[in-house]
Amino acid sequence: MTLDVDTAQNHLIISDDLLSVYYTPQKQDRKKCAERFHPSPCVLGSSRFTSGRHYWEVVVGTSKEWDIGICKESINRKKAIYLSEKNGFWTVGVRGKKVYSASTDPLTLLLVNPRLHRVGIFLDMLENSVSFWDLSDGSHIYTFLKIPDTDPFRPFFSPASSYPEGDQEQVLSICPVTNPGIFGIPVNPQ
């Protein structure tokens, strides 16, 4: 999986290998694309999922703010987004490096290891669920159940948008899978 530059908001820097993203105050000179996010600082993964089971891992590092997960491919990218299931987003994120939440409406606050560094995301379209895991200890973070399967899904990434340019702590990176054993919903999802 890689990042889709054609969807990247113009203040996001995408690495040459298309695996990492961070925010910059300088606007990038990218071609105009109908798929591009504006004004929200977001980018989608290049993969489109319509069936099956899919797993990927994201290094969130020590970033103080981020959101990752999935969204419907058909979401409106031309207005400020509000992350919620009813708007087609199934994400987890953090604010202020200490308030973790799932994009339910209202938000579901999460008890997460404050040293969370790497997140596993498992999309199971057979069970209509998406689960998030803390890969430092294999603990379950959150599972969305009964996600609709009417649209293709895309991996979703939104790094911090209020920190100094090039601050390596604010980078989100897709990384090689290190924990392929996480392929199922937990016995007692919250």
Rank of each mutant, 00 (worst) to 15 (best):
F49P: 00
S47M: 12
N76F: 09
G61E: 08
T62S: 13
W66H: 08
E73D: 14
N76L: 13
V59R: 15
S51Y: 05
G61I: 12
F49C: 02
S74C: 14
T50H: 02
E65K: 15
K78A: 14
K72C: 06
S46D: 06
I68L: 13
E65A: 15
K64R: 15
S74G: 06
K64E: 12
V58F: 02
F49E: 02
K78V: 07
H54T: 07
R77N: 10
G69A: 03
E65N: 09
G61R: 13
G45F: 07
R53K: 15
W56D: 01
G61S: 10
S63D: 09
S63F: 14
K78M: 12
V60H: 06
G61L: 12
R48P: 00
C71F: 03
E73M: 06
K78W: 14
K64M: 13
H54S: 09
G52Y: 14
G45E: 06
I70V: 08
K78E: 11
S46L: 10
Y55S: 06
I75P: 02
T50M: 08
T62P: 00
H54I: 08
K64G: 01
L44F: 12
D67N: 13
S46P: 00
T50D: 00
R48A: 03
C71H: 04
I68D: 02
Y55L: 08
W56Q: 04
K79P: 02
S51W: 03
R77F: 13
K64V: 12
G52A: 11
G61H: 09
Y55W: 07
Y55M: 07
I68N: 03
S47D: 12
S63H: 13
E65Q: 14
I70M: 04
I68F: 05
E57A: 08
N76Y: 11
G45Y: 09
H54L: 10
S51Q: 09
L44S: 00
W66V: 08
G45Q: 10
S51A: 11
G69V: 04
W66P: 01
T50A: 02
T50S: 08
I68H: 03
